[in-house]
Computed example of a mutant assay.
Amino acid sequence: MAELDKFDYRLLELLQENSRMTGNELADKVGLSSAACLRRVQRLRETGVIERDVAVVSPKVFGKRMMVIVLLTMERDRPDRYILMREEFAKMPEVVQCHHVTGAHDFVLRIQVSDMEEYSAFVERVFHEPYIKRYESLAVLGSLK
């Protein structure tokens, strides 16, 4: 991986906020020429520092106004289920993020649904399996960052 300097880190911060910034916009904020900024961004992409550019679409466009964070704990005697759960979560449209984590819980999920009724149906469909020990739901009131 490429050696990064303060200009690279600043470019990465800016691009995480808006990956469509022009060379001129980047130059104004970083203190390098537009061409230098664009060369650096290209190098960051080619070396894998920037893995991909994505569009962050508001879930509200699809009527998914409610976000729930779920802390999921599996039964410890079923390690075979971890791989299967990851595969299942990847297929579920409600699950927009899934993290396999250390600590008291096994998975942290970000669920996007239209309302509590849809979330309730999701819970009934997914979380009442014998290999799931417990889950904790955290309804998101607002996002700061």
Rank of each mutant, 00 (worst) to 15 (best):
R45V: 12
L109I: 00
P93R: 10
F107Q: 03
V61G: 04
L44H: 00
A36V: 06
Y119N: 01
F127L: 01
G48M: 05
I50A: 04
E25M: 09
P59W: 06
E17R: 15
D106Q: 00
I69L: 11
V123C: 04
R20G: 14
L84Y: 14
F89N: 07
L12D: 05
E46I: 02
V57M: 14
R10P: 04
L12K: 08
L44F: 00
K29A: 06
N18P: 12
M74N: 03
M21T: 04
F62Q: 13
G63T: 05
N24W: 14
A27W: 04
V96T: 06
E88A: 13
S19E: 06
D53C: 09
Q42F: 05
V126S: 04
S34G: 09
C37Y: 02
Q16Y: 11
A55H: 14
L11H: 04
K60V: 15
N24L: 15
G103T: 06
R86C: 01
E118V: 05
L72A: 03
M85S: 15
C98T: 01
T102A: 14
L12N: 07
M116D: 11
K29P: 07
D77Y: 13
A104D: 13
D28T: 13
G103Q: 07
M116S: 10
S120M: 10
V30K: 00
R20T: 12
D80H: 11
E118I: 06
K60P: 14
K60F: 15
G103L: 06
L11I: 06
F122R: 03
G48Y: 03
V56C: 03
L15R: 03
V101T: 09
E124Y: 10
V54P: 07
D106Y: 01
